[in-house]
């Protein structure tokens, strides 16, 4: 694989991260490529979710956190004081571990973000809802019940709605924090198919506990352990020919 500078969307340089005095990430340097699916794996508490939440500045919401090093998004440091986290989060969408639709109608869940950022026209919004739901492969299931509460959907449908909601903001990147860990196998398969489809247009970074999932959906995989990036390579290499003993132990199930 040839990597040139212009298809790199995220560039992390010696990133350290602290919750108060506890260091959660140590000296992380890695690049994320455009229109690829990158998986972050590792045992609980290894810092993979923390890293994901650094990429759209969600960790800002926690008191007493501190970032060192540089996180460049399209070449500019998102932690520079003149970069507005609100602006950054519009371009970098996020899907959470537990489906978290708003207690609003399906329609209003999708239009919530766009409406607050300038799209007011009803026809535009309707088109956006249809596009987003189609992209999230949910349209056929909900097109007749758009005014029903999102809370009446099943867990898997709710998670696809959350993906549609994120896509409605037309982001460049989609961050997914264990998006299927609360779902049944059939819903999980649907989300994985969806990821396969979405990677044509979006850069996807996915945190997962499920190693088969990482192997199935991603092209690059990073293995984290105790806040450090242990190994980062093509997914096929990580799973067939890991270079570091800890990676091998983890993927063969010897710990974690």
């Amino acid at each position: 694989m040839v990597t040139t500078a212009n298809n790199i969307i995220f560039e992390l340089k010696q990133v350290n991260f602290f919750y108060g005095s506890t260091q959660a990430l140590t000296d992380i340097s890695m690049d994320f490529e455009k229109n690829r699916v990158t998986a972050l794996i590792g045992p609980s508490g290894c810092g993979k979710s923390t890293l994901l939440r650094l990429l759209n500045r969600m960790n800002d919401l926690i008191d007493g956190t501190r970032v060192e090093g540089e996180i460049l998004f399209e070449g500019r440091n998102i932690y520079n004081a003149d970069n507005d986290p609100v602006e950054i989060r519009r371009r970098i969408g996020m899907v959470f571990q537990k489906p978290n639709p708003f207690p609003k109608s399906i329609f209003n869940n999708i239009t919530y973000g766009p409406r607050l950022t300038g799209t007011r026209n009803r026809a535009d919004l309707e088109l956006l809802v249809e596009q987003s739901l189609k992209q999230a492969v949910l349209w056929d299931e909900v097109k007749d019940i758009l005014n029903k509460s999102a809370m009446t959907l099943s867990g898997g449908q709710q998670q696809r709605l959350c993906i549609a909601r994120a896509l409605a903001m037309k982001p460049d990147v989609l961050l997914m924090d264990e998006p299927t860990s609360a779902l049944d196998p059939i819903s999980t398969a649907k989300i994985e198919d969806l990821i396969e489809e979405l990677k044509k247009n979006y850069t996807i970074i996915i945190v997962t506990h499920n190693m088969q999932q990482a192997a199935r959906v991603s092209e690059m995989t990073g293995f984290f352990y105790l806040g450090r990036l242990i190994e980062y390579a093509l997914t096929t290499d990580i799973f067939t020919n890991p270079q570091v003993k800890q990676t091998e132990d983890y993927i063969t199930g010897r710990f974690g």
Binding site: M58, L61, R89, R90, R91, F96, N100, P101, A166
Partner: peptide, 9 residues
Amino acid sequence: REASLALGV
């Protein structure tokens, strides 16, 4: 709150 903030609101 997280869902809303993550949408850039």
